[in-house]
Design a protein around this nucleic acid. Sequence first.
RNA 1: CGGGGCGUAGCGCAGUUUGGUAGCGCGCUUGCUUCGGGAGCAAGAGGCCGGAGGUUCGAAUCCUCUCGCCCCGACCA
Length: 613
Amino acid sequence: MFATDSTYLVAAAGNGITTSMRSFLYETARRSKSRAVYRSMRASRFLLPTAKEAPADATVASHVLMMRAGMIRRVAAGIYTILPLGLRVLRKVEHIVREELDRVGCLEVTMPMVIPAELWEESGRWEFYGPELLRVKDRKGGDFCLGPTHEEVITTLAASEIKSYRQLPLNLYQVQTKFRDEIRPRFGLMRGREFVMKDAYSFDLDPDGARESYWQMHEAYSRIFARCGVTFAPVEADTGNIGGSLSHEFQVIADTGEDALATCTNCGYAANVEKAQVAGPPLAGLTSAGARQTVSTPNVGTIADVSALMGVDPKQFIKALVFETEEEPVMALMRGDRDLNEPKLRVLLGVDDLRPATPETILRVAGAPAGFIGPVGIEGTRIIADHEVLALSEAVCGANAVDEHLKGVVPGRDFTAEAADLRIAEEGDACGRCGDSTLSLRRGIEVGHIFYLGTKYSEAMKATVLDTNGKATPLEMGCYGIGIGRTAAACIEQNHDENGICWPVPLAPFEVHLLALGKQDEVLDACTALYDQLQDAGLDVLFDDRPERPGFKFKDAELVGMPWRVALGKRGLESGMVEVMERASGERFDVASDELVSFLSERIVPARRGDLA
RNA sequence: CGGGGCGUAGCGCAGUUUGGUAGCGCGCUUGCUUCGGGAGCAAGAGGCCGGAGGUUCGAAUCCUCUCGCCCCGACCA
């Protein structure tokens, strides 16, 4: 026997435990208990490096406040160390995410962060994903990448482990660090290169099942963000290069958001502006047609300049844009004062790759350089016009000849084009869904994104199951992401003031911040007693027992922003009252110290459910 | 990748134009006083002035090249 393990010794000793061992165990327990007290959530022992000033490179509130509150520190561009206070927030988000996903039957897994190239070659994305995919080599020269997303890995797993429709539906998720070599990381955790993400993948036998899984996740996401206590909106979204047809983003509403959202107050339509449908104006009659004329516009190629030269409103112009795709080039027409929405065009064309044409291609298609091109006389190239262009009764456009434009151009008479909705939605545009109301624009932070993928990956990676007829059929997939750190950052964007963060209870690193005002033993003892009571009641408490001055502690407490602040000093000790302040409202309460626990529990416990409370 | 800006103590900055022994505020250490809204006084610690070349008797400062970071744009599950 190799009875060297102390656990084994104790177990073997059973009731015959020796006196010396008992005293040893007692001593260990005593020391670990004192150690536990020593290491408990006291500010004097917590790593809480707060700062009055923010680093110069932080420009948005969440970044500034996360730095100032000592939640994060930058290690490299877009790469951060998460400090204890910050990690507690991320854990709270993760906890909510796990609870809600587990609730709808998702199963947690963990996939590798380093992924062999062959999986990405199989899906075709090794070639297509671009420089955002950080590629590395191992010592043998083998190609790997740092996982930016895990469709390849999960689909490989599904291909080998899911054999029968009886195993479906299945939804697997993980909470894991991802790496995307972003062109421009910024705003702290909001847009890092390395970041923690929850990604989930659903597998179903058929499209109906997959849609059911999709909407179930839609519901779960709505619960998750409601529980986080953030104001958010699910919006219809473009699927980008991940593929698929049905997609929603979950956007936290914030002025500093990087995404623009269009919402219709009438029908409830909400979409990312990349996708938002705009109702086209009624088509104009073709009756008032005048003669078409050529106008000399030497060296004047921009719409603004031609407009000034000719004295014609840019709204009367047709802007012609040539794009290259993996297929033939196309020409898109917009009204002169409007911007093209590239994702809309890409979806319409059904292509993956869409980019502005090179000068050579433009010359080949139109016979003239950019600035002087138009739809009149173009042959052999597909022309797609925004509804507004076709509604013009008479327009100005490039003449497809250097230094010349055409006026009196009539859509339908002088050229023909396919009609489509190509515009970027603007404030006040007619809602493309109901047509009865106008769209209003807001900004949002994309904290979650769900996709119905279909069989794009399962076909590429041969992930099939046998259906009820014993026939092999590719899995119907969906994928679902939540940015954990971004959710925390978005929460700060929505919940802060000039003094610091105002955490909602569900994400707060601690629920109560207990401040001992004064270094006297009576004060510290009284506060320690309160601290124990609050902890015994199951509240999450940070106890500021540092030998700092009151003003300093108040400022720190406001900066880190726990939802409830409890302050006790000599003054309160004499009156038997403690001062309680709610961070978000600034409201103060004088509470008898023996009623503190119930006072706070009544307010905090229900608030833990966020907006689902 | 294009345009603009910045690298000087842990953080925020001055000094660079016109070369001459590296400074301020915050923070940190020690002591005394203070103690319910980021205290006062005193004494300290801390810098290869992003890096490499060059010019010069002498370079944070001038020249060349590099690296990093920020902002705007392009880009982007």
